[in-house]
Nucleic acid binder design. Structure first.
Length: 255
DNA sequence: ATGGCTTCATAGTGAAGA
């Protein structure tokens, strides 16, 4: 089964790309971030007409997450238990026996911003919550836009980015905190091309020059690591007209 | 060069993203 994450930067704008990608790749689960719409506006019929189920948690203008799945999502949960948050950034559901947790981690803006403190607090709450979830659901996948490049090799120009938001040491420590729970970065279970990224700035011809970051991840619990057959990034959607600035990242896990 | 591009909410520009 293919488990995928994709920050679509507005599902209104990107729906045709999502539809085409679902038809071509037939994933078991596709986690979306930044759908940027209220629930009433979600294109449920368009997704369901392709033979998929969908659960979502949206809001006007910003954020918003969804899980599109071939199997009916069960035990749907929204948000981080015990962490009050107006921003719609987490939805979880059990899909074909796998606990799929879809997250849109806060960006943080800059190290001196209140949003950076919110990001670190949010990650701490996420990690605490997931510790319990992993005990309840040993087969767990954490997919999303983490807004963290875990290592320098995930950054096109580590020198230029040194100490910036998305690569700062406290953020990377938070990523290692997730690893300490027993979650593994599926991408690094396999040999990968150098300069593999999931996001490129719209400005400065970032994609054409491959000036990117790897900030979208699929992390897997130990039992899913044992079943993981592949993990990769599909850069093709980034080449389309009016693309999202992110592209899909996925893992393939044996049924 | 603190810019560059895209989205949304708005009907001018401004916020936010990464």
């Amino acid at each position: 089964m293919k488990l995928v994450t994709w920050n679509v930067n507005s599902l209104n704008v990107r729906l045709p790309h999502v539809e085409d990608w679902l038809k071509a790749h037939q994933p078991e689960a596709l986690c979306l971030q930044e759908i940027k719409m209220e629930d009433a506006r979600f294109p449920r019929e368009a997704i369901e007409s392709l033979g998929y189920h969908v659960v979502f948690d949206g809001q006007k203008t910003y954020n918003g997450v969804a899980i599109i799945a071939k199997s009916r999502p069960e035990d749907v949960a929204r948000g981080i238990a015990g962490f009050a948050d107006e921003q719609r950034r987490v939805i979880a559901a059990t899909v074909n026996g796998v606990r799929v947790v879809c997250v849109y981690v806060p960006n943080g803006q800059s190290l001196d911003s209140d949003k950076y403190q919110y990001k670190l607090a949010w990650l701490k709450a996420l990690t605490g919550w997931l510790g319990g979830e992993l005990k309840l659901y040993p087969d767990l996948a954490l997919l999303g836009d983490y807004n963290i490049a875990p290592e320098d090799r995930d950054v096109h120009d580590p020198k230029a980015w040194e100490g910036q938001v998305l690569v700062s040491e406290p953020e990377r420590a938070a990523f290692r905190g997730l690893q300490a729970l027993g979650l593994a970065d599926s991408f690094r279970l396999f040999d990968q091309p150098e300069k593999s990224f999931t996001w490129w700035d719209y400005r400065m011809n970032g994609f054409k020059r491959n000036l990117g970051l790897r900030i979208d991840h699929v992390m897997l619990s130990a039992s899913l690591v044992a079943r993981c057959q592949a993990s990769s990034i599909d850069i093709e959607p980034r080449k389309l007209e009016r693309p999202s600035d992110h592209t899909p990242a996925f893992a393939v896990v044996a049924d």
